[in-house]
Structure formats: C-alpha cells, structure tokens
Design a protein around this nucleic acid. Structure first.
Lengths: 248, 248
DNA sequence: TTTTTGCCTTGATGCAGATCAACCCTTTTC
DNA sequence: GAAAAGGGTTGATCTGCATCAAGGCAAAAA
C-alpha cells in the first residue's frame, strides 16, 4: 500500500539526510554499495499505520524523514506508546519475523527499507552495520529507562514538561542550534498521542499544558506551536537534575 | 571492597553456569580463551552497592549468580527501578566511562568482570561477542518496553500479578520446569523493592499482595515464599493477553 | 453556506493509590 | 534477655488524576 505520491526520492546514499546518523553511519564505500543494492523507499501519509503488532514483517528500515510511533495496546484498549521514531531511528529487529508493536506514521513519513533476509546476511559480514546497530540499540535502551522513571514516578506536570523539553532539545539539535534561552517549535503529536506517550488521559494533558501556559513556562500560538521563553525554567519543571546529560 | 567470602569460584569458562546464555554464549574456543585472560570475579553481599550512578566504571560484567537491580533516583528521593539483572545478564556499556544507574546486589551476587578497555578491543575483533551483546540488548529493550506499558497503564493489582508472573516464569525456567499449573518460588525482592520496580508505594504493594492472597490467586508461607496454585489464573490478573509470548 | 469531523478545552465528580500513622513479628545487637 | 532494627501489615484520610460531560473552534465536506 506504499505510495509514490510524495516527492520522488531518487536518493543516492551519498546525499541522504541521515547518512551520518542511521544504521549505515559507519559504513565504508563498499559496504554502502551493498546496502544500496537491497534498499528501497516507502512513504506513508500522516495517520497511516505502517504495520500492526503481530503482523509478519519482512523488512527492517530507517526513518528518513517524518515521525513514527511504536505503540502497545492491551485487550481492553488501554494504549501505551513505547517509542518515538525520529529521522535516522531504526525500525524492526533482525532475527524476528513479526512486528512486536504497532508502528504508525504521525506525520508524513519516508522510510529506507531493507528486506530482512539480505540485511541479516549483510550484518554477518559487514561489522560496521552491526556495530552501529548495537550503539543505537543501547541508546534506545537508555531512553526507554529514562521513560520508565517518567512513567513510574513523575507527576502529570513533570511529564508534560519532560516531553516538551525532549522535543525542544531534538528540534534545536536538528536546527543545529543550542537548546538555550528562547526556543520555538511545533508539537508533532496530538494531545491524545501525548497522553499515550505519558501514561495520562488527553484531558489531563490539556489541563497541564494550559497550566504551564498560565504559569508562563510556555506560550502557545494555536494549539501546536510552542514558545519556550526560558529553557532552563522548563527544565526545572521536569523534575530532572538540572544538567541531565542527554542530547538526543 | 570485593570479598572472597563466598564459595571460591575457581571457574573455567567451560563449566560456567551461564556459559550458554551470557555475552560469551556464541564464542568459539579461541575467543573464549581471550575472554578468560581478561576476566576476573567479584562477589557482593546482599544489600551492597556495586556502583553508584555517575561513578567511574572501568569494567563491564555478567551476573553469574544472584540478583542485582538498576535504579534511578530523582533529586528529591523518588526512586524507580529500571532493570532487574538475573544470572547471565550484562552490566555496563562498552564505550561509556561512567555508570548511568545505581547497581545494587539484592541477593549475594557473583559477577564475572572484564576490564572495559580490553573488552572493547575484543569486541572489535571477535564478532560473536558483539553479536550476542546486540541480541541481549534487543531483548532488554523489549523488556523495558513491556515495562513501560506496565508503568503507564496497568492497575496496582495488575502490576503485582505481572511481577509475580515474571518471577515465576523465570524461576520455572531456571529449574527447567514448565510454567504451568502449580508453581512455588521465593520472592527475591522486599516490598519496598517491589514498589520501586512497579512505580507504587510499599503500602500499596503490601495491600495488593494481601488482596491476591485473599482472592486465592496466590498463597503465602511467610512473607517471601509464594505458592501459585494456578498459573493461568495469575496470568489472567496481569491484564496481558493470555498467551503473551515472553519466555524470559 | 451549512454541516460534519477532528482536535482541543474546561467543568463537575469519583476513585485508586498516596500519605500518615500505628502496630506486629523476627532477627540482630549488646 | 532487653532493646533496637528491619521488614511487613493494616487502618484512616487525602489528593492527583481519571472519568463523565458539555461545548468551542477551525478545517473539510456537503
């Protein structure tokens, strides 16, 4: 069901926007050539489901542009987002044949896909892919543990502030600006998606966003455009020790 | 501060109890020989801290026997356990010089340690170590995401049932019995540690354990010895879909 | 233009789990 | 053998967030 309706992506790996951060980051020219042979692109529109948990998944992929989410759902419908996938993040697991989570495009999304079998073969022979994937997986594990602290122990207000701080940091990073002083960005998530990520209801998310606005920690233009006049002030609201080493 | 007060562990890798599950599981004889050269054992008594978050950490290690925990602490003292380390689990991160979490021995503990630098060198040259570490890290990431669902969306009763089911499964696995019908095991955690793991208070843990006992889902002998007359009944209480693929 | 739909906000109320507090039992210490 | 310490239970009360409910606003559809 993939479409060709987005800008035609006649990519060479050489000028790929995620070339230096994705699973291929460490590859030499010859390794890249092998990857290039087995790669193909897929595009999804905002809101589309990439794959359902339990479905057969015969590829792995890197997010090239856009944002996707990983979500778990309980029988009775309770939902918990367990991952936010940004450009360069990796989707899927070598050595596993079915998807473990629902993967959804929250914005228009382009992924660089590799059929699983050839990718696995390639991992056996080109150490740089496996090395980079290990590094990325360790980073994700750290992020997941950070999130466990948030889910288990933070208040609703701290949760919102933490999410905003993370998105602000990432955004500053993508724009190559330092996350200091005044920052402006657009929320890539609806209130409901934020709630699914933070273990809250959408009503509580809405109330706490309003509270942070009322208290001058953030300002809003419309519902999605966030202005952070003082980033340090926002960080104070997260409950984390002020420096908190993570830089995305 | 390591002690030699536990059974003297004059181990050859060949008859190591975690030989086939730890980071060394895939190693050939020659690779094992290289590991053997740089390994050393450390023992800790129940309650001892292995390392504090932020401390310099010049080794990585495998848990050989006993149980350790990874914990994050907020400035005001709120605590969240983010990992439970069982025999064969890996501690530390290649390429990082300080500990990211508090590591504590909850039972008497023996670890097989490798100085970080030689281990990193070895990883570059022996693909089997890196491969196995990737596999283990991916498993841990899945476990962390499972835990995110628990922390974000499950009720106190479901959290307790989930923890008991996980420990029961692991225990059955170690004893090479199937996790079916009646199971008996000892809780390796205090009520407070359970609370830290589950994002609850110790009072709520105590109450919910009592409630599960009152409802006949479990029986207790003393405070730590748990009897599960019907494992499927316990699983029903976890909120997970009945089969829930994980086998430890 | 009107209607519908998606997304968001705000208010009223309820409840699960936190908090505060008392006490029990077992093991360790002196 | 008394006292202290560690771990656990249970009760009373409080509160943060969920739930239920109504309505606003802008974009899309009719």
């Amino acid at each position: 069901m993939a479409h060709h309706d987005l800008q035609t992506v006649s990519h060479e790996c050489g000028d790929c926007p995620i070339r230096h951060r994705a699973v291929c980051a460490r590859c030499e020219a010859d390794e890249l050539a092998r990857l290039e042979q087995i790669k193909y692109y897929r595009s999804y529109q905002a809101g589309q489901t990439v794959i359902w948990s339990g479905d057969k998944m015969d590829f792995v992929a890197s997010v090239v542009t856009g944002i996707a989410t990983l979500t778990q759902t309980m029988e009775d419908g309770r939902r918990q987002m367990v991952g936010l996938l940004l450009p360069s993040d990796f989707v899927g697991r070598p050595g596993r044949s079915t998807a473990a989570y629902d993967v959804t495009a929250t914005t228009d999304l382009v992924m660089c896909c590799f059929r699983k079998k050839p990718f696995e073969d390639l991992m056996q022979t080109t150490p740089h892919v496996a090395q980079r994937l290990l590094e990325m997986t360790l980073d994700e594990l750290d992020a997941a543990r950070e999130w466990m602290l948030l889910l288990g122990r933070k208040t609703a207000r701290e949760k919102i502030a933490s999410l905003l701080a993370i998105i602000a940091r990432r955004d500053a990073h993508l724009k190559l600006k330092s996350a200091k002083g005044s920052i402006v960005f657009d929320l890539p998530l609806t209130r409901e998606e934020m709630a699914d990520y933070l273990g809250l209801t959408l009503e509580t998310v809405s109330r706490q966003v309003s509270a942070l606005k009322r208290d001058g920690v953030i300002a809003l233009e419309g519902k999605r455009h966030i202005i952070v006049p003082d980033f340090d002030r926002l960080v104070e609201e997260t409950g984390d020790d002020s420096d908190g080493g993570y830089l995305i």
